[in-house]
């Protein structure tokens, strides 16, 4: 089984997000970068399934030349191939992103049986790229998945609901968008990181689609309520006061 995991390079934000002077982007000068957490689980699942079935796992990203770093993390985690759809680093909307990724997948040497996306990217949270790609490719998709099993030509995918899970069965090939908790992504060894540095990455430069999309005007950081908490007390003696608050809030 050949698998694909689509990933995105996102900054590791600290306690407070700082914006650039023009409010068009996050100031990343002092930040490191990572793969969105949901997508890290997508890579792990893609690699495990390829390993179990003797197929190949491919990682794909759309992003700046620097996103090469995240592709190499994917290779160090066990991916066999990597595809970089290179942009100038500008933020692309969800439709342009989806159409470029769909073209990139169609142009790839491999054909994929299972394609993994994150349920939403950590930074933009548009909740739609994977679904749009699936429609372009004519493949079934289900989103928000936290458990995946293969049963012959069917993928059994579970989504968390209140008090349990709901189960979907999709014919393969299929697309799944996944959530953190699907698995525990491996930490690549130093040796595999060194090897990943020398791996080959297939690169293409897609055209940015002009389709009508949501257009960003500017970013702002939300106002925060910094009013200090009412300190009920210190040490175990505070327990009485806690119970008084519980009574006041009518939760007991």
């Amino acid at each position: 089984m050949n698998t694909l995991a689509c990933i995105k390079r996102v900054p590791e934000t600290g306690a407070k997000i700082v914006l650039t002077d023009d409010n068009q982007a996050i100031d990343t000068t002092s930040l490191g970068f990572t793969i969105s957490p949901h997508e890290e689980c997508g890579v792990e699942e893609a690699v495990q399934l390829a390993e179990e079935t003797g197929g190949t796992a491919t990682v794909l990203t759309l992003g700046s030349p620097e996103a090469d770093e995240q592709l190499r993390t994917g290779i160090a985690m066990g991916a066999d191939e990597a595809i970089h759809l290179e942009t100038d680093g500008e933020q692309w909307g969800p439709r342009a992103t989806a159409s470029a990724i769909a073209e990139g997948i169609e142009a790839a040497d491999e054909s994929f049986d299972l394609l993994f996306f994150g349920n939403e990217s950590a930074d933009q949270e548009n909740y739609q790229v994977g679904v749009r790609v699936a429609h372009t490719l004519g493949l079934p998709i289900v989103t928000g998945i936290k458990n995946v099993e293969i049963d012959g030509d069917t993928v059994v995918a579970e989504r968390e609901i209140s008090g349990g899970t709901e189960v979907f069965e999709l014919p393969i090939p299929a697309v799944l968008t996944v959530k953190e908790g699907l698995n525990s992504p491996r930490y690549p060894s130093m040796r595999s990181k060194m090897q990943a540095r020398r791996a080959e990455v297939a690169t293409a430069t897609p055209e940015r689609s002009e389709a009508n999309d949501v257009e960003m005007i500017e970013l702002e950081t939300p106002e925060r309520d910094d009013s200090p908490a009412e300190v009920l007390g210190e040490g175990p003696e505070a327990a009485e006061d806690v119970v008084a608050v519980l009574e006041e809030l009518e939760v007991i």
């Binding site: 949501v214 257009e215 960003m216 500017e218 702002e220 950081t221």
Partner: peptide, 16 residues
Amino acid sequence: RQRWGGSLLEDARIDA
């Protein structure tokens, strides 16, 4: 709209 779980806000336009 919210981004980053709500720690960032985006003013945006949609026209369809």
